[in-house]
Amino acid sequence: MKQKALLYVLMVLILLTVISAVISNLKIGNATDIIMILAALKFLVVAFYFMELRDAHIFWKLLLIGCLTIFTGLTIII
């Protein structure tokens, strides 16, 4: 992956982290859901771009997405 593209990925990750921190300080009803969805998004960005999972066999992609969906879903539902 090109270095410039990796830099854009990092900037997106930083932005999502700052947004999560700001949302946690706001008194809004769905804050937990939004924060967990943003965390899941960051997780996928790191896995697919930094860990190069996007170049892997679809089995590994689906397995990770499945695990993450179960985890995020459970934390939101509970």
């Binding site: 960051k42 790191v46 930094f50």
Partner: peptide, 22 residues
């Protein structure tokens, strides 16, 4: 080695919201 290091990122990305924010 890089994958192991990124795994530390992944784990932290799950810990951070649940411990510090939620």
């Amino acid at each position: 080695s890089a994958t192991f290091w990124h795994m530390c990122d992944l784990i932290w990305l799950l810990l951070f919201p649940l411990i510090y924010l939620v």
